[in-house]
Nucleic acid binder design. Structure first.
Length: 328
RNA sequence: GGGUAGGUAGCUCAGCGGUAGAGCAGUGGACUGAAAAUCCACGUGUCGCCGGUUCAAUCCCGGCCCUGCCCA
């Protein structure tokens, strides 16, 4: 039998590859930032044979603990977590790596007779896991740098025109100002000789790579924002600024991707003397609200999510009960 | 009680005799190898209330209510 990773390379559907014990599918908890999904997932895992897989583009970085709300040492003693602390902040990561890392983690958990429980805060990663992603091209940072240079010298429109020539279908789909997507599309064309639009076909499939059961925590935005504000206050109280200072002073510093993390980029600006601490805190709150909104635009498009309505002051036992029943 | 400044979008405020605008906040969407990234789009609100002047009032006049400040 092929491993999930091998099947992914071949771009084939592999849902049936899972053992019989998980026929109802991969259990996935989704929710906006600060929705409480991690806490409830931990509680579920503590009382059963689940292991948690983090589907999160920022929890992968070692040393970025407070700002990404990772599980604490106590929790990690009781529950096994995957795809947390897998690389250094100065290292690079991407969706495709996530898909293969996650496939491997799932297979490993199942092989040991346990059940994976995915907790998703980065919807793109989940989508790529479920639908697959083309495997013909990596990325080329030198090529990107050259194109960035061209863009600043001759204007982005110059690159967009190139894209219109080599891949009109893709050019049509993206906006002429969307620098990153224009550069990526040209990068793929230059590496593979194929238009990226002919490779990016997986998301249109109707069959998923895994059968799934998805449950989501849903909040009214005002109440979620209140939780966000409280959580950001807590992060600062618990030493987020010191954490960022520590990362910078370690010598290696933050990377291009990890340095974009909400809660980190704002504090870096504060430490550089650009903004006050109070302003940084407000920016972190604002950025987190923005993140929550963007997560929701993805979730709205995911099919078959069972939503659990949450309210401030809710009985957490009730949510736990509904959640465990939904995941059966 | 007297004086004074004001009451316009969720907030801070600008504005003008021809029924209104900015910043911030907020909202919707796109998204496949940087995604906590990148990009696109979205501004009707009793202009405090009642009356008057006027062809026409958010704007001018009068009264009232409310808020800040000053004086008693």
């Amino acid at each position: 039998m092929l491993t999930p990773l091998e099947m992914n390379t071949q771009g084939r559907f592999m849902g049936q590859c899972l053992s019989n014990s998980s026929l109802t599918g991969l259990r996935i908890i989704i929710g906006q930032t600060a929705s409480g999904k991690s806490a409830i997932a931990s509680r579920i895992a503590r009382h059963s044979d689940y292991e948690i897989i983090s589907v999160d583009s920022m929890k992968i970085y070692r040393g970025m603990d407070i700002g990404t709300s990772k599980p604490n040492a106590e929790q990690r003693k009781k529950i096994r977590y995957h795809l947390i602390d897998i690389i250094e902040p100065y290292e690079e990561y991407n969706v495709a790596k996530f898909v293969s890392d996650c496939d491997r983690a799932i297979a490993d958990i199942i092989k040991r007779g346990k059940k994976p429980l995915l907790v998703c805060g980065t919807p793109l990663y989940l989508k790529a896991l479920l639908y697959g992603i083309f495997a013909d091209s990596g990325s080329d940072s030198q090529l990107r740098a050259e194109m960035e240079k061209t863009a600043s010298e001759k204007g982005l429109a110059f690159l967009y025109e190139q894209l219109m020539k080599v891949d009109p279908a893709k050019a049509d789909k993206i906006h002429a100002n969307d620098r990153k997507r224009i550069i990526r599309a040209l990068e793929v064309y230059k590496i593979t000789g194929k238009p990226i639009s002919t490779l990016q076909t997986h998301f249109k499939k109707t069959e998923l790579r895994y059968p799934v059961t998805m449950v989501g925590l849903k909040w009214k935005s005002e109440e979620l924002y209140q939780r966000i504000n409280e959580r950001v206050e807590r992060m600062f109280k618990h030493g987020l600024v010191e954490e960022v200072k520590g990362l910078i002073n370690s010598g290696k510093g933050l990377g291009k991707q990890s340095g974009d993390a909400i809660g980190y980029k704002e504090i870096v600006r504060h430490l550089n003397g650009e903004i006050t601490l109070e302003a940084a805190k407000e920016e972190v709150k604002k950025g987190t609200r923005y993140l929550a909104r963007k997560q929701m635009t993805w979730f709205r498009r995911f099919p078959d999510i069972k939503w659990i309505e949450c309210k401030l002051g809710d009985d957490t036992d009730r949510i736990y009960k509904v959640m465990t029943e939904s995941l059966e």
